[in-house]
Simulated assay, not measured.
Amino acid sequence: MTEQLNTDRTAEYPLECDHCHYPIPGEAEESDDGRYCSNACREAADDGSTMAEPSAYKRVVTGVEPIDSLVPNGVPADSLLLLSGDEGTRRTELGTELAWRALERGEPAVVVSFANPPTATLERFYQNGWNVLPALENDRLRIIDCFTYRLDDRDEFIEQRNAWTEFVGEAAEDAIVEVRDPSDRREVTHSVQGALDDLEMTETGLVTIDSLDELESLLQQQMVHGFLKDLRGMVCKARFVPIIASSAAMDEADAPHAEYAFDGIIDLRLTDRLAPDARLKQLAVRKLVGAQFLPQWVTYEYEPARGLFAFGPNTDARQLYESGNGAVQSNQHSHR
């Protein structure tokens, strides 16, 4: 009877390997100090090797409400994700918020900026009410500057900065990695790798790329895919650090390439189907390798400091806005 109970309990609660912490699918390899799924794990443990719990580094809860509502168990940390959406969907704010949520968790972040100079990239955080000065001082944020050296007169650009921009630029000076030739994908890749090494980013933090559209203006599409493939292998797969890249919505001709290049695609769109006199923003997960996700659209809005938030189908979208200025009302924040 006891043996039967033990068998049933093992079937319901499978044993975990004391080294890799994954379920043991068959008979355990046992030793004096534990049970293991394989000889490799037992020998590694005998040599003093230890592994963190898988959930500690292989899943990321982003902290962005609309995404987390669709991916309740977290995004695999070895993912290259694409944010695909047209203008007006707050795609840029979403990329900024994902980096901020990592910093808020105490993790490092690397922002690869093709579309803006570093001060403008940092200003995106401040426009949302997110102060990144402590992260700069604590060496948890890097900006890979793929913009400044493309200017015709970068010295004049620096001289024309106002007092605030000059202050932010000086405060971030040690956190900015300048890329002299953004059209050289190897230089960009090495700059990202160097930033990750400096911040000791393995199994922690994330990388964002602000605009694949700007990158495609510098490189041919085939070279962009090669660049993404290299980063995916060296950052996502080797270090378990996710990369989130942003791009305008792709047409059907580009879709097969996206399916090949990315582990996950998050679509953002504007729609007037729910409220004919209002263009609402919606978000859905098109694909996400290695994770369960809800196959539905989530309606969302944006507010400085709060970021993106979801609201349900029973909410009157017009009630979310104050008359005349489009600002979100503070008393309508609940997620229904």
Rank of each mutant, 00 (worst) to 15 (best):
L5E: 07
R9E: 04
R9H: 06
E12C: 02
Y13R: 12
E16T: 06
D18Y: 05
C20T: 08
A28I: 05
S31L: 10
D33G: 01
D33C: 01
Y36D: 06
Y36T: 02
C37E: 05
E43Y: 10
A45S: 15
G48R: 10
S49W: 07
Y57N: 02
G63Q: 09
G63I: 08
G63L: 08
I67N: 02
I67T: 03
S69E: 12
P72S: 09
G74Q: 02
S79Y: 07
G85A: 05
T92V: 08
G95W: 03
R101D: 02
R105Q: 12
G106E: 00
E107G: 04
A109P: 10
V112K: 01
P117L: 03
T119F: 02
T121R: 04
E123A: 00
Y126L: 00
Y126Q: 00
L133K: 10
L136D: 01
N138D: 15
R140L: 10
L141I: 13
F147N: 07
F147H: 15
Y149L: 09
R150T: 15
E159C: 03
A163H: 06
V168L: 14
V168E: 00
A172Q: 05
E173Q: 10
E178S: 14
E178G: 06
V179G: 07
V179E: 11
P182F: 06
P182V: 07
S183G: 12
R185M: 11
R185Y: 07
V188N: 01
S191R: 01
D197F: 08
E200F: 06
E203K: 15
L206C: 11
S211M: 11
L219H: 11
Q222E: 14
H225S: 14
H225E: 13
L228C: 11
L228V: 13
D230S: 14
L231N: 01
R232W: 08
F240Q: 14
I243P: 00
I244H: 15
A245Q: 13
A248T: 14
A249G: 09
D251V: 14
E252C: 04
A255E: 13
F262P: 05
I266Y: 04
L268N: 05
T271P: 01
D272M: 08
L274M: 08
L274P: 00
A278R: 14
V289N: 15
A291E: 11
L294V: 15
W297D: 13
T299D: 03
E301N: 14
F309N: 05
F311M: 06
F311E: 04
N314A: 09
T315L: 07
R318F: 03
Q319N: 07
E322H: 13
N325Q: 10
N325L: 09
N325F: 12
G326H: 01
Q332G: 01
H333G: 13
S334R: 10
H335C: 03
